[in-house]
Simulated scan of single mutants.
Amino acid sequence: MNKHSFKIEKPCKEIATQLQDKIDNLTKPKGSLGRLEEMAVQIGTIQQTLTPTITNPQNIIYGGDHGIAAEGISFSPPEITPQMVFNFIEGGAGINFFARQHGIGMKVVDSGINYDFEPMSELIDLKVRKGTRNYLHEAAMTEEEFNLCLERGASVIEMCHREGTNLVSFGEMGIGNTSSSSMWMACLTGIELEKCVGAGSGFDSEGVKRKYRILKAALDNYKGDGSDLDYIRYFGGYEMVMAVGGMLKAAELKMVILIDGFIMTNCILAASRICPEVLEYAIFTHQGDEAGHKMLLDFLGAKPLINFGLRLGEGSGALCAYPLIESAVRMINEMSSWQKASVTKYF
């Protein structure tokens, strides 16, 4: 399978020492701003500068439908996907108020929604197909579709880059994508599937058990070659693989990547199986309530910034945590040094 020619360089770590030295000489006790200091070093290292910046931040929402939804594995009906796309465009969704609050741009992408939209300037039409196939019986997508998703997902980030964006967050809309994420998690980490399956958009305990039984049957029916890329193709969603392509391109372009909840954490996991260096560019913003998310974060060695019990998706956790990222950048650029402020070190 074609991995594509993503050329992601691991950021040079030599500048990290200089960044830490600058932070240690700001007018505060050493280490007293905790995670903000860690983020400032990471962002400065990504950008290879002692004065990191955030320019034109954007949140990308990829939308797609899942064939497995026909098996009743989601609390929400499939028609919700196009309805929510209209809600994003009209500005009424949860992600919209976060974007307005923090001045973050939004792009909404039709990756593979089972709906015929009229042409709209607010919707980027990159539809591969009207929903994936039902992976209870066959692969969700072909190899050609998989590669097309990577390319098209990356093209959105190239568009952002041309617009001056150097920080991007990723969101999704797709009924059934927590199920696909659970499949990715189990296949790519080796964690038992039952521990990876949760309530999604609202199942009770009996609903979760039924969802697990269906997904376990799909895993038992798997007919691929057992490679990481084949698992991603076989059980993925078009919107998820486009997000993977977007993350890989963002890292190639040396952007800061904000990782949202359970689904996007699985997407960065999948991206790391194509190019491990992508993780150097990722900031994990929150731990959600979906079963398995904490285990997945622990598997990746990730320390989320917040734990607010969010399970909305759309990039909501990333944008909710965004002010912390902005604070880290402001800290390293706006605080005075001991020498400049003529303040005696008091520790």
Rank of each mutant, 00 (worst) to 15 (best):
Gly103Tyr: 02
Thr81Phe: 09
Met159Thr: 04
Glu38Asn: 14
Ile8Trp: 04
Met173Phe: 01
Ile60Thr: 09
Leu312Ser: 05
Ile95Leu: 08
Thr51His: 15
Ser337Glu: 13
Met242Ala: 14
Lys340Met: 06
Ser227Phe: 04
Gly105Tyr: 05
Asn2Val: 06
Trp184Glu: 00
Arg311Ser: 11
Cys187Arg: 00
Asn166Pro: 02
Phe117Gly: 03
Ala251Met: 13
Met295Pro: 10
Gly190Trp: 00
Lys195Gly: 00
Leu193Tyr: 01
Met120Ser: 07
Trp338Ser: 07
Ala154Gln: 01
Ile175Val: 15
Gly91Ser: 06
Asn114Met: 14
Val109Lys: 02
Asn307Ile: 05
Ile73Leu: 05
Gln42Lys: 14
Lys345Leu: 08
Met159Arg: 02
Ala154Phe: 07
Gly301Asn: 14
Phe284Asp: 09
Lys28Pro: 10
Glu163Met: 04
Pro77Val: 05
Asn114Tyr: 06
Gly63Val: 14
Lys340Ser: 13
Lys303Thr: 10
Lys254Asn: 15
Ser337Pro: 09
Phe203Ile: 03
Leu19Lys: 04
Ser182Ile: 00
Thr142Pro: 01
Asp298Trp: 12
Ile54Pro: 04
Gly105Trp: 02
Leu300His: 12
Ala328His: 08
Ile8Glu: 05
Arg210Ala: 15
Ala282Gly: 10
Glu118Pro: 05
Gln18Thr: 04
Asp298Ile: 15
Glu158Ser: 06
Leu305Asn: 13
His137Trp: 06
Ile15Trp: 12
Ile61Glu: 01
Glu277Ile: 08
Ala93His: 04
Leu148Gln: 12
Val256Cys: 07
